[in-house]
C-alpha cells in the first residue's frame, strides 16, 4: 500500500505541469516584463527596474481604476450578501411558485458577463434606453446615465449585482436548508422573537455559506472586466476602468506592455492580500463560533 501511494503521486504531474506552464510561468513572465519598457511585440525590451511601479503611483488613471476596483469588489459583495440572503430566506419560505423565483433569479449568473452587460446597456443608453423611456412616461428629462464617471461605476456595480445575486442566493439557500428545525423549536419555547432567532440561530448556522459566498463574490468583483467592457469600455475618459480593464487598455491600446505587466502584478498581489486577510478573519470568526 505504501509503495502504491508513492507511485500514485505521478498522477498529479500532468496537472502540475499545465499549471506551471500556463499560470506560474506567465505570472513570472509578467513580473519580468513589468521591469522593462516594451511595446508588446518588438524583440527589444529595455530593462528599467522598478520605474513602471513608480509611474503607477503618479498615474491618476491608475488610482481611479484602483478606487473603482474596490467599489466594484466590495460594493457588489456587500449588496449581494444582503440581497442574496434575503432572497434565499424568501425562497425558503412556503408559498406557491417559489421554485420559479429561484430558477429565474439564478438564470443570469449562468450567462456571459459581457452579454448581460450589453443587455443592460440597452436599458441605460441615452437614446432609446428603457430607463429613459420609463422616465419620459412620468415627464422627466432623459439622463445620460453613463456620461459621468462615478455614476457609470455605480451602474456597472448594479449590473454585476443583478447578474450574480442568484449565485449568493443558491449558496445561502443550501445553508438555510441545512439548519435543523429543532434549534428553532427549542428557542421558540424559550420565547425568542423572530429577529433573535435570525441573529442567534440562523446566522451562525449558515456561517460556511457566508464565507464561501463572500469569497466568491469578492474575488469575482475585484476581477470585474466583462461588464465594464460592455457598458462603457472604461469611459468616459478612463473614469470607469477597473484595474483589469485599465491593464488591457495600456497593453493592447497604448502598447505599454511593461506598465501593463506592473499593473498585473499589482492586481495579483492585491487580490492575494485581500483573500489572505479575509480568510484569516473568517477562520477566527469560525473558531469563536464553535
Amino acid at each position: 500500500m505504501q509503495k502504491m501511494h508513492k507511485r500514485m503521486n505521478w498522477f498529479y504531474v500532468p496537472a502540475l505541469m499545465l499549471l506551471v506552464l500556463f499560470v506560474a510561468y506567465p505570472l513570472g513572465n509578467a513580473f519580468f516584463v513589468s521591469l522593462t519598457k516594451w511595446n508588446g511585440y518588438s524583440s527589444h525590451k529595455t530593462f528599467i527596474g522598478i520605474n513602471n511601479y513608480i509611474r503607477m503611483t503618479k498615474d491618476p488613471a491608475f488610482w481611479t481604476s484602483f478606487r473603482n476596483t474596490i467599489l466594484y469588489g466590495f460594493g457588489s459583495t456587500i449588496l449581494q450578501q444582503i440581497l442574496g440572503l434575503a432572497l434565499a430566506i424568501f425562497v425558503n419560505s412556503e408559498f406557491k411558485g417559489r421554485n420559479l423565483v429561484r430558477t429565474i433569479v439564478y438564470l443570469p449568473a449562468m450567462m456571459s458577463g459581457l452579454v448581460m452587460g450589453y443587455v443592460l446597456y440597452f436599458f441605460f443608453q441615452y437614446d432609446q434606453g428603457v430607463v429613459n423611456e420609463v422616465l419620459s412616461w412620468f415627464g422627466y428629462a432623459p439622463v445620460d446615465w453613463m456620461g459621468e464617471g462615478i455614476r457609470a461605476v455605480l451602474i456597472i456595480t448594479f449590473v454585476n449585482v443583478w447578474q450574480f445575486t442568484g449565485l449568493s442566493m443558491i449558496i445561502y439557500l443550501a445553508g438555510l436548508q441545512g439548519v435543523s428545525q429543532t434549534y428553532y423549536e427549542a428557542a421558540q419555547i424559550d420565547g425568542a422573537n423572530k429577529w433573535r432567532l435570525f441573529i442567534h440561530i440562523t446566522l451562525p448556522s449558515i456561517y460556511p455559506s457566508i464565507v464561501s459566498s463572500t469569497m466568491f463574490n469578492l474575488i469575482g468583483g475585484l476581477k470585474l472586466f466583462d461588464a465594464i467592457q460592455a457598458m462603457t469600455g472604461g469611459g468616459p475618459g478612463n473614469a470607469s476602468h477597473s484595474l483589469s480593464s485599465y491593464l488591457t487598455r495600456e497593453y493592447f491600446g497604448a502598447e505599454k506592455a511593461g506598465y501593463a505587466g506592473a499593473i498585473g502584478v499589482f492586481i495579483f498581489a492585491f487580490i492575494m492580500l485581500v483573500s489572505y486577510v479575509l480568510n484569516s478573519a473568517f477562520r477566527k470568526g469560525g473558531e469563536r463560533l464553535s
Partner: peptide, 12 residues
C-alpha cells in the same frame, strides 16, 4: 485566487 488578468500579459 489568481486573477486571469495578472497572467494575461505573460500568457500573451
Amino acid at each position: 485566487m489568481i486573477p486571469g488578468l495578472a497572467v494575461l500579459v505573460g500568457v500573451y
